[in-house]
């Protein structure tokens, strides 16, 4: 992958006899990449490996061509918002961020200014002078994010960054992630909420029980799943007429009436042929369609097919 700054080569991580992740080969490029999987699937392990907080039991992790464990200079270029909801004692939001910025070599004045900028980006400015211990869950989440962003890293690793946030704050942060990705940053985030990932990510890495099941953009991954025929929703006023036209073709595997009676669910293994057929039928005036939409090429469906889990929150 061109521009990939993060590489996993045959990486496994075991905690004693417990598997963290197994034989992961992965390259992560610019844009927003989401690590998706249920709790305990290995998302945080991958993130801790790429930030050097853990070392692989086998294989090699590289960021900017270096192993992150033992290469502290990388951390001028990497920001990590970890899952731990904990902070040093007695600090205000601004002090928390400024104190760690000073460890990046900034003067107190620079650190204070950068801390306030980062706090402003996560819309927490009014609370900058309050003790972090008095913050709500959502505010703590945002101040952690501000801390990860404050030194303007090229790679931003965010473990469940939208946890505990209200819908408005989620929308604002998703917008912020998009801005960062548009500026060429690598934004790697994890989530177990599938529809959230569908909205935000350019690429997804689907993880289950320590294994990477698939990687890519969702339609691309979906197309590769040849075992599962593509499901397409057709909205039309005369579903029975459309169904009879479709049944005449071999590549149509299943047609069923949509539960609201206003359309059909069609299963096919040959999406291209199917769409050509639809074009013919519509242009010849034999059927009339209101809308056509893939019904199972979202991340929820892909995950369901891969691991047999029902969608939504994993």
């Amino acid at each position: 992958m061109s521009g990939a700054l993060i590489r996993f080569d045959d990486v496994s991580k075991f905690y004693g006899e417990v598997l963290g992740v197994n034989r992961v080969d992965l390259q992560i490029g610019p844009g927003i990449t989401a690590l998706v999987g249920p709790n305990g699937s290995g998302k945080s392990t991958l993130m801790n490996l790429m930030t050097g907080l853990l070392e692989p039991s086998q294989g090699r992790v590289e960021i900017f061509g270096k192993a992150p464990h033992g290469a502290p200079e990388l951390f001028d270029q990497v920001g990590y918002c970890a899952q731990f909801d904990s902070f040093p004692r007695g600090v205000t939001g601004r002090q928390f961020i400024a104190a760690y910025l000073r460890l990046h070599g900034l003067s107190q004045r620079e650190a204070d200014a950068r801390a306030l900028q980062a706090i402003e980006r996560v819309d927490l400015l009014p609370a900058a002078g309050k003790k972090v211990a008095a913050y709500s869950k959502g505010m703590r989440q945002r101040i952690k994010l501000a801390q990860a962003l404050a030194h303007d890293p090229q790679i931003l690793v965010l473990d469940e960054p939208l946890n505990g946030l209200d819908p408005m704050a989620r929308a604002e942060l998703i917008e912020l992630f998009r801005e960062l990705a548009a500026a060429g940053r690598h934004v790697i985030l994890s989530s177990h909420i599938l529809h959230e990932v569908d909205v935000v990510a350019d690429e997804v890495v689907l993880i289950h029980q320590g294994y990477v099941m698939a990687k890519g953009d969702i339609p691309e991954v979906r197309e590769e799943m040849v075992d599962h025929p593509l499901e397409i929703l057709l909205r039309c006023a005369t579903p029975s007429l459309v169904a009879s036209e479709l049944f005449a073709h071999d590549h149509i595997l299943e047609v069923r009436l949509h539960e609201d009676g206003g359309g059909l669910m069609v299963k096919t293994r040959q999406a291209d042929s199917f769409y050509l057929l639809l074009n013919d039928l519509v242009s010849s005036g034999r059927i009339d369609l209101e809308a056509v939409a893939p019904a199972d090429d979202d991340v929820m469906a892909v995950y369901r097919y891969l691991v047999g889990s029902e969608g939504g929150t994993l």
């Binding site: 930030t51 050097g52 907080l53 502290p72 200079e73 990388l74 951390f75 001028d76 990497v78 920001g79 990590y80 970890a82 731990f84 904990s86 902070f87 040093p88 004692r89 760690y100 460890l103 990046h104 070599g105 801390q147």
Partner: peptide
């Protein structure tokens, strides 16, 4: 306190 990672993630 689970705050050690902040230090480990500095350069």
């Amino acid at each position: 306190q689970r705050s050690w990672h902040y230090s480990l993630l500095t350069p």
